[in-house]
């Protein structure tokens, strides 16, 4: 969708939410759901940062690490891409304690989401690094940079710009995936919705609100990432990049 349609949809979603929250039949639900949305946002934010870190580390390890490290990175990537997020979540939640590692549900939630997204992200980072033309490596060698210097100063800055759009998709997937943490008792937006639903049985009302809230957050994320993408490519042309 074009940027303008996205903004249009966002305005529509926020408008609907604002209107609903003035109506009597929705009024009681709003505070509870917004409270849950706050948890959803917090988990999304922390897991996004961690996922990005995991992705960069895993991609660099996979591309440039010593052989055993390279293998370790591959195992991590294949394992978390190859299994289902829900299975990973439940494994950390139910199985890990049996190995004597009891983590708080919130930690488990953040860890599962970030490890999972980080594995997908590692492939994004790798693809972006490999998409930087080989001439950039050669020019770096010609001015006698080491591989590390070339990677840090020349290749990664260019790769970062290339990876903004796929990371936008990953962050949206991450946001959507946070709904699963309700299944391990984290009181996120989905958890609150299910709770309200079981008490009031006003399914249509509650879930309409919840869908609108998720839609709003998703669209805002999309707009932020599009903005970043635009700024980065304009930065290449005009302003400063770093």
């Amino acid at each position: 969708m074009g940027a303008r349609s996205i903004i249009g949809m966002l305005v529509g979603a926020i408008g609907l939410l604002a209107w609903f929250s003035t109506l009597e039949r929705f009024r009681a639900f709003m505070p509870v759901l917004l409270h849950g949305a706050e948890t959803t946002l917090r988990i999304t934010a922390i897991a996004s940062v961690l996922a990005f870190a995991f992705a960069i580390i895993a991609a660099l390890a996979r591309l440039y690490g010593l052989l055993p490290i390279r293998w370790l990175a591959r195992v991590y990537i294949e394992m978390f891409r190859g299994t289902s997020l829900l299975v990973q979540l439940f494994w950390l939640y139910f199985v890990l304690p049996e190995f004597g590692m009891s983590l708080a549900p919130f930690t488990v939630a953040v860890l599962a989401l970030s490890l999972n997204t980080g594995a997908y992200g590692a492939e994004v980072v790798r693809a972006a690094i490999e998409a930087v033309p080989s001439g950039q490596w050669e020019a770096s060698t010609a001015v006698n940079m080491t591989r590390t210097q070339a990677l840090r100063r020349i290749i990664l800055p260019q790769a970062l710009i290339l990876m903004i759009p796929p990371w936008g998709n990953l962050f949206i997937e991450l946001l959507k995936a946070t709904a699963l943490v309700s299944l391990i008792t984290i009181p996120d937006l989905t958890f609150r919705a299910l709770e309200l639903n079981s008490i009031t049985l006003k399914t249509i009302d509650i879930f309409t609100l919840v869908l609108l809230i998720y839609l709003t957050i998703s669209l805002m994320l999309t707009i932020i990432m599009r903005g970043l993408e635009g700024a980065a490519s304009r930065g290449l042309a005009r302003g400063r990049v770093h």
Binding site: M1, M9, K176, A179, T190, I204, F207, L211, L215, S218
Partner: peptide, 26 residues
């Protein structure tokens, strides 16, 4: 269709599943 597609892509599958599961019977 674009709005429908964007909407479905932007919201969690889990919520969509619950929604249909609880609402269709109504």
């Amino acid at each position: 269709l674009s709005i429908f597609i964007e909407f479905v892509r932007s919201t969690p599958l889990l919520i969509q599943m619950f929604f249909l599961y609880f609402v269709l019977p109504q």
